[in-house]
Protein backbone atom coordinates (compact mmCIF):
# COMPACT_ATOMS: atom_id res chain seq x y z
CA UNK A 1 0.00 0.00 0.00
CA UNK A 2 1.18 3.46 -0.83
CA UNK A 3 1.36 6.39 1.51
CA UNK A 4 -1.98 8.23 1.94
CA UNK A 5 -1.20 10.81 4.59
CA UNK A 6 2.42 11.85 4.51
CA UNK A 7 3.78 13.84 7.41
CA UNK A 8 7.34 14.92 6.70
CA UNK A 9 9.76 16.76 8.99
CA UNK A 10 7.09 18.56 10.96
CA UNK A 11 8.16 20.86 13.85
CA UNK A 12 6.35 23.17 16.25
CA UNK A 13 7.69 25.24 19.11
CA UNK A 14 5.81 27.03 21.93
CA UNK A 15 8.25 29.37 23.64
CA UNK A 16 10.79 27.09 25.29
CA UNK A 17 8.89 23.89 24.61
CA UNK A 18 9.60 21.91 21.45
CA UNK A 19 6.16 20.32 21.03
CA UNK A 20 7.02 18.58 17.74
CA UNK A 21 10.58 17.93 16.66
CA UNK A 22 11.08 16.86 13.04
CA UNK A 23 8.21 14.36 13.08
CA UNK A 24 7.75 12.16 10.01
CA UNK A 25 4.97 9.57 9.73
CA UNK A 26 3.40 7.78 6.76
CA UNK A 27 -0.17 6.66 7.23
CA UNK A 28 -1.89 4.33 4.79
CA UNK A 29 -5.40 4.53 3.45
CA UNK A 30 -8.03 2.82 5.62
CA UNK A 31 -5.51 2.32 8.36
CA UNK A 32 -6.39 2.52 12.05
CA UNK A 33 -3.40 4.45 13.31
CA UNK A 34 -2.61 5.39 16.92
CA UNK A 35 -0.48 8.28 18.18
CA UNK A 36 0.60 7.04 21.59
CA UNK A 37 2.64 8.68 24.31
CA UNK A 38 2.65 10.28 27.74
CA UNK A 39 0.95 13.66 28.20
CA UNK A 40 2.99 16.48 26.72
CA UNK A 41 4.64 14.27 24.10
CA UNK A 42 3.18 16.32 21.22
CA UNK A 43 0.58 13.84 19.98
CA UNK A 44 -2.37 16.22 20.48
CA UNK A 45 -0.48 19.10 18.86
CA UNK A 46 0.10 16.93 15.80
CA UNK A 47 -3.57 15.94 15.68
CA UNK A 48 -4.72 19.54 15.98
CA UNK A 49 -2.26 20.58 13.27
CA UNK A 50 -3.76 17.97 10.94
CA UNK A 51 -7.20 19.45 11.64
CA UNK A 52 -5.87 22.94 10.93
CA UNK A 53 -6.51 24.19 14.47
CA UNK A 54 -2.81 24.66 15.11
CA UNK A 55 -0.15 26.01 12.76
CA UNK A 56 3.21 24.32 12.21
CA UNK A 57 6.62 26.01 12.18
CA UNK A 58 8.05 23.79 9.47
CA UNK A 59 7.47 20.55 7.60
CA UNK A 60 5.15 19.27 4.91
CA UNK A 61 1.91 17.33 5.17
CA UNK A 62 0.30 15.85 2.07
CA UNK A 63 -2.98 14.00 1.82
CA UNK A 64 -3.30 11.87 -1.33
CA UNK A 65 -0.35 13.80 -2.75
CA UNK A 66 -1.98 17.18 -2.19
CA UNK A 67 -0.68 19.80 0.23
CA UNK A 68 -2.92 19.71 3.31
CA UNK A 69 -1.42 22.62 5.23
CA UNK A 70 -2.47 25.23 2.66
CA UNK A 71 -6.14 24.23 2.96
CA UNK A 72 -8.09 26.32 5.53
CA UNK A 73 -9.32 24.42 8.58
CA UNK A 74 -12.98 24.54 7.60
CA UNK A 75 -12.28 23.15 4.10
CA UNK A 76 -10.11 20.17 5.07
CA UNK A 77 -11.48 16.69 4.36
CA UNK A 78 -10.41 15.86 7.90
CA UNK A 79 -12.78 15.71 10.86
CA UNK A 80 -11.92 15.71 14.52
CA UNK A 81 -13.71 14.09 17.40
CA UNK A 82 -12.86 16.26 20.40
CA UNK A 83 -11.81 14.83 23.75
CA UNK A 84 -14.55 16.87 25.46
CA UNK A 85 -16.85 15.88 22.53
CA UNK A 86 -17.66 19.63 22.09
CA UNK A 87 -21.30 18.87 21.34
CA UNK A 88 -23.27 22.09 20.86
CA UNK A 89 -25.45 22.31 24.00
CA UNK A 90 -28.05 24.54 22.33
CA UNK A 91 -28.69 22.07 19.50
CA UNK A 92 -30.35 18.66 19.73
CA UNK A 93 -28.71 15.43 18.56
CA UNK A 94 -30.11 15.72 15.04
CA UNK A 95 -28.99 19.33 14.59
CA UNK A 96 -25.57 18.58 16.03
CA UNK A 97 -25.06 15.82 13.47
CA UNK A 98 -26.56 17.87 10.64
CA UNK A 99 -24.42 20.93 11.45
CA UNK A 100 -21.48 19.98 9.26
CA UNK A 101 -23.64 18.88 6.31
CA UNK A 102 -25.56 22.18 6.38
CA UNK A 103 -22.24 24.03 6.09
CA UNK A 104 -21.63 22.09 2.87
CA UNK A 105 -24.94 23.53 1.60
CA UNK A 106 -26.19 20.06 0.73
CA UNK A 107 -29.71 19.41 -0.38
CA UNK A 108 -32.21 19.10 2.49
CA UNK A 109 -33.35 15.58 1.67
CA UNK A 110 -29.77 14.39 1.37
CA UNK A 111 -28.88 15.88 4.73
CA UNK A 112 -31.91 14.22 6.30
CA UNK A 113 -31.04 10.87 4.70
CA UNK A 114 -27.40 10.96 5.79
CA UNK A 115 -28.18 12.09 9.35
CA UNK A 116 -30.75 9.31 9.74
CA UNK A 117 -28.36 6.73 8.34
CA UNK A 118 -25.53 7.67 10.66
CA UNK A 119 -27.81 7.89 13.69
CA UNK A 120 -28.99 4.37 12.91
CA UNK A 121 -25.41 3.20 12.64
CA UNK A 122 -24.58 4.52 16.10
CA UNK A 123 -27.98 3.38 17.47
CA UNK A 124 -29.12 6.85 18.49
CA UNK A 125 -32.09 7.33 16.17
CA UNK A 126 -34.50 7.31 19.15
CA UNK A 127 -32.54 10.07 20.86
CA UNK A 128 -32.41 12.42 17.87
CA UNK A 129 -34.53 15.13 19.54
CA UNK A 130 -32.63 15.11 22.82
CA UNK A 131 -30.19 17.75 23.97
CA UNK A 132 -26.60 16.72 24.78
CA UNK A 133 -27.26 17.38 28.48
CA UNK A 134 -29.88 14.63 28.42
CA UNK A 135 -27.48 11.96 27.15
CA UNK A 136 -25.20 9.52 28.97
CA UNK A 137 -21.43 9.68 28.50
CA UNK A 138 -21.44 6.81 26.00
CA UNK A 139 -24.30 8.36 24.03
CA UNK A 140 -22.52 11.73 23.85
CA UNK A 141 -19.45 9.96 22.57
CA UNK A 142 -21.49 8.32 19.82
CA UNK A 143 -23.09 11.64 18.83
CA UNK A 144 -19.62 13.18 18.55
CA UNK A 145 -18.54 10.25 16.41
CA UNK A 146 -21.66 10.44 14.23
CA UNK A 147 -21.21 14.20 13.78
CA UNK A 148 -17.68 13.64 12.50
CA UNK A 149 -18.24 10.62 10.23
CA UNK A 150 -21.42 11.95 8.64
CA UNK A 151 -19.15 14.38 6.78
CA UNK A 152 -17.46 11.37 5.12
CA UNK A 153 -13.99 12.75 5.78
CA UNK A 154 -10.88 11.24 4.21
CA UNK A 155 -9.42 11.03 7.71
CA UNK A 156 -11.14 10.90 11.08
CA UNK A 157 -9.08 12.21 13.96
CA UNK A 158 -10.00 11.06 17.46
CA UNK A 159 -8.56 12.88 20.47
CA UNK A 160 -8.57 10.55 23.50
CA UNK A 161 -12.05 9.43 22.42
CA UNK A 162 -12.62 6.95 25.21
CA UNK A 163 -10.93 8.63 28.16
CA UNK A 164 -14.15 10.01 29.66
CA UNK A 165 -15.89 6.63 29.68
CA UNK A 166 -15.77 4.02 32.41
CA UNK A 167 -13.88 0.82 31.81
CA UNK A 168 -16.74 -1.42 30.73
CA UNK A 169 -18.24 1.04 28.23
CA UNK A 170 -14.72 1.74 27.01
CA UNK A 171 -14.03 -1.78 25.85
CA UNK A 172 -17.42 -1.94 24.10
CA UNK A 173 -16.64 1.34 22.36
CA UNK A 174 -13.26 0.04 21.25
CA UNK A 175 -15.02 -2.74 19.38
CA UNK A 176 -17.57 -0.28 18.07
CA UNK A 177 -14.85 2.03 16.74
CA UNK A 178 -13.13 -0.86 14.94
CA UNK A 179 -16.42 -1.95 13.39
CA UNK A 180 -17.23 1.61 12.26
CA UNK A 181 -13.81 2.13 10.82
CA UNK A 182 -14.16 -1.08 8.88
CA UNK A 183 -17.67 -0.25 7.61
CA UNK A 184 -17.03 3.38 6.76
CA UNK A 185 -13.69 2.72 5.12
CA UNK A 186 -12.21 5.87 6.62
CA UNK A 187 -8.64 6.29 7.84
CA UNK A 188 -8.73 6.71 11.62
CA UNK A 189 -6.00 8.45 13.60
CA UNK A 190 -6.49 8.12 17.32
CA UNK A 191 -4.55 9.95 20.00
CA UNK A 192 -4.23 8.15 23.30
CA UNK A 193 -1.99 7.90 26.35
CA UNK A 194 -3.34 4.44 27.16
CA UNK A 195 -0.98 1.83 25.69
CA UNK A 196 -3.45 -1.02 26.23
CA UNK A 197 -6.05 0.89 24.20
CA UNK A 198 -3.59 1.61 21.39
CA UNK A 199 -2.40 -2.02 21.36
CA UNK A 200 -5.90 -3.48 21.18
CA UNK A 201 -7.38 -1.05 18.67
CA UNK A 202 -4.73 0.10 16.21
CA UNK A 203 -3.20 -1.44 13.10
CA UNK A 204 -0.04 0.54 13.70
CA UNK A 205 1.23 2.77 16.46
CA UNK A 206 3.58 5.74 16.53
CA UNK A 207 5.01 6.07 20.02
CA UNK A 208 6.02 9.64 20.80
CA UNK A 209 8.10 11.16 23.59
CA UNK A 210 9.02 14.84 24.06
CA UNK A 211 8.01 15.82 20.55
CA UNK A 212 9.91 13.01 18.85
CA UNK A 213 8.59 9.83 17.23
CA UNK A 214 10.40 7.02 19.04
CA UNK A 215 9.08 4.04 17.11
CA UNK A 216 6.46 3.29 14.47
CA UNK A 217 5.35 -0.35 14.41
CA UNK A 218 2.46 -2.75 14.66
CA UNK A 219 1.37 -3.52 18.23
CA UNK A 220 3.02 -6.96 18.13
CA UNK A 221 6.32 -5.60 16.85
CA UNK A 222 6.32 -2.85 19.36
CA UNK A 223 5.79 -5.33 22.19
CA UNK A 224 8.23 -7.94 21.06
CA UNK A 225 10.91 -5.73 19.52
CA UNK A 226 10.98 -2.37 21.30
CA UNK A 227 13.59 -0.07 19.83
CA UNK A 228 14.53 1.76 23.01
CA UNK A 229 14.29 1.46 26.77
CA UNK A 230 11.48 4.05 26.71
CA UNK A 231 9.40 1.86 24.36
CA UNK A 232 10.05 -1.26 26.42
CA UNK A 233 9.02 0.54 29.58
CA UNK A 234 5.95 2.28 28.09
CA UNK A 235 4.49 -0.73 26.26
CA UNK A 236 3.25 -3.55 28.45
CA UNK A 237 4.75 -4.61 31.76
CA UNK A 238 8.44 -5.40 31.84
CA UNK A 239 11.46 -5.91 34.08
CA UNK A 240 14.31 -3.61 33.10
CA UNK A 241 17.82 -4.45 34.27
CA UNK A 242 20.38 -1.73 33.55
CA UNK A 243 24.01 -2.80 33.67
CA UNK A 244 27.32 -3.26 31.88
CA UNK A 245 27.77 -5.84 29.13
CA UNK A 246 30.30 -8.68 29.41
CA UNK A 247 30.57 -11.46 26.85
CA UNK A 248 27.18 -13.19 26.77
CA UNK A 249 26.25 -11.69 30.11
CA UNK A 250 25.24 -8.38 31.62
CA UNK A 251 26.31 -7.34 35.11
CA UNK A 252 23.40 -5.78 36.97
CA UNK A 253 24.04 -4.49 40.48
CA UNK A 254 26.78 -7.08 41.00
CA UNK A 255 24.78 -9.99 39.57
CA UNK A 256 25.45 -11.57 36.21
CA UNK A 257 22.51 -12.29 33.89
CA UNK A 258 22.61 -14.08 30.51
CA UNK A 259 21.96 -11.96 27.38
CA UNK A 260 20.58 -12.81 23.95
CA UNK A 261 22.78 -12.52 20.87
CA UNK A 262 23.68 -8.89 20.45
CA UNK A 263 25.57 -6.48 18.23
CA UNK A 264 26.55 -4.38 21.23
CA UNK A 265 30.17 -4.74 22.32
CA UNK A 266 31.41 -5.78 25.74
CA UNK A 267 31.77 -2.96 28.25
CA UNK A 268 28.81 -1.01 26.83
CA UNK A 269 25.98 0.23 29.04
CA UNK A 270 22.83 -1.74 28.26
CA UNK A 271 19.37 -2.65 29.49
CA UNK A 272 18.03 -6.18 29.64
CA UNK A 273 14.27 -6.30 29.10
CA UNK A 274 12.44 -9.29 30.48
CA UNK A 275 8.64 -9.66 30.17
CA UNK A 276 6.90 -11.16 33.25
CA UNK A 277 5.30 -13.94 31.18
CA UNK A 278 8.71 -15.11 29.91
CA UNK A 279 9.93 -15.96 33.43
CA UNK A 280 9.05 -19.29 34.96
CA UNK A 281 9.25 -20.50 38.53
CA UNK A 282 11.09 -23.72 39.30
CA UNK A 283 13.51 -25.64 41.52
CA UNK A 284 16.56 -24.26 39.77
CA UNK A 285 16.96 -20.89 38.04
CA UNK A 286 19.14 -17.97 37.05
CA UNK A 287 18.22 -15.94 40.09
CA UNK A 288 16.26 -16.64 43.27
CA UNK A 289 14.17 -14.43 45.46
CA UNK A 290 11.48 -14.12 48.11
CA UNK A 291 7.85 -13.57 47.10
CA UNK A 292 6.89 -10.16 48.52
CA UNK A 293 3.38 -9.78 47.15
CA UNK A 294 1.03 -11.10 44.51
CA UNK A 295 -1.58 -9.09 42.62
CA UNK A 296 -4.57 -10.86 41.16
CA UNK A 297 -5.53 -9.92 37.55
CA UNK A 298 -8.44 -12.06 36.40
CA UNK A 299 -6.92 -15.18 34.83
CA UNK A 300 -3.42 -14.76 36.20
CA UNK A 301 -1.46 -13.11 38.97
CA UNK A 302 1.50 -10.79 38.87
CA UNK A 303 4.07 -11.78 41.48
CA UNK A 304 6.70 -9.48 42.96
CA UNK A 305 10.01 -11.05 44.01
CA UNK A 306 12.82 -9.54 46.01
CA UNK A 307 15.89 -10.94 44.23
CA UNK A 308 18.41 -8.53 45.72
CA UNK A 309 17.99 -5.89 42.99
CA UNK A 310 16.93 -2.32 43.70
CA UNK A 311 13.63 -3.04 42.03
CA UNK A 312 11.31 -6.01 42.58
CA UNK A 313 11.17 -8.58 39.78
CA UNK A 314 7.72 -9.06 38.21
CA UNK A 315 6.64 -12.55 37.17
CA UNK A 316 3.26 -13.55 35.83
CA UNK A 317 1.93 -16.83 37.05
CA UNK A 318 -1.18 -18.99 36.56
CA UNK A 319 -3.63 -18.71 39.41
CA UNK A 320 -3.34 -22.23 40.74
CA UNK A 321 0.45 -22.05 40.89
CA UNK A 322 0.92 -18.98 43.10
CA UNK A 323 3.33 -19.87 45.95
CA UNK A 324 2.68 -18.56 49.49
CA UNK A 325 3.98 -15.03 50.19
CA UNK A 326 7.39 -15.23 51.90
CA UNK A 327 8.51 -18.39 50.15
CA UNK A 328 11.77 -18.47 48.20
CA UNK A 329 11.57 -19.32 44.50
CA UNK A 330 13.98 -19.79 41.65
CA UNK A 331 13.36 -17.70 38.53
CA UNK A 332 14.44 -18.90 35.11
CA UNK A 333 14.04 -17.78 31.52
CA UNK A 334 15.44 -18.44 28.13
CA UNK A 335 18.00 -15.80 27.18
CA UNK A 336 16.55 -15.62 23.66
CA UNK A 337 13.21 -14.40 25.06
CA UNK A 338 14.88 -11.43 26.66
CA UNK A 339 15.69 -8.24 24.76
CA UNK A 340 18.94 -6.31 25.04
CA UNK A 341 18.90 -2.58 24.34
CA UNK A 342 21.63 0.04 24.42
CA UNK A 343 21.27 2.35 27.41
CA UNK A 344 21.64 6.02 26.70
Amino acid sequence: MSSFLNIAGVSKRYGDVQALNNVSIDIRENEFFALLGPSGCGKTTLLRALAGLESLDSGVVTLANEDLLSVPANKRPVNLMFQSYALFPHLNVYDNVAYGLRREKLDKTEIDQRVHDVLKTVALIDQKDRRPSQLSGGQKQRVALARAIVKRPKILLLDEPLSALDKKVRSEMQLELKRLQHEAGITFIIVTHDQEEAMSIADRIALMDKGVVVQIATPVEMYSAPKTKFVADFIGTSNLFAGTLGSGTITVQGKSLPTPVTALSAGAKAVLVLRPEDISLGIAGTISGTLVSSNFYGGSSLLFFDCGFEQLVKVSCALNQVPPVGSTCHLSWSASDSILLADA
Partner: peptide, 12 residues
Amino acid sequence: AMKEAAINLGAT
Protein backbone atom coordinates in the same frame (compact mmCIF):
# COMPACT_ATOMS: atom_id res chain seq x y z
CA ALA B 1 -13.43 23.42 21.51
CA MET B 2 -17.01 24.52 20.63
CA LYS B 3 -15.81 27.08 18.11
CA GLU B 4 -13.07 24.75 16.88
CA ALA B 5 -15.65 22.02 16.39
CA ALA B 6 -17.80 24.34 14.28
CA ILE B 7 -14.81 25.26 12.13
CA ASN B 8 -13.74 21.64 11.88
CA LEU B 9 -17.25 20.79 10.63
CA GLY B 10 -16.92 23.36 7.84
CA ALA B 11 -18.11 26.66 9.34
CA THR B 12 -16.32 29.89 8.48
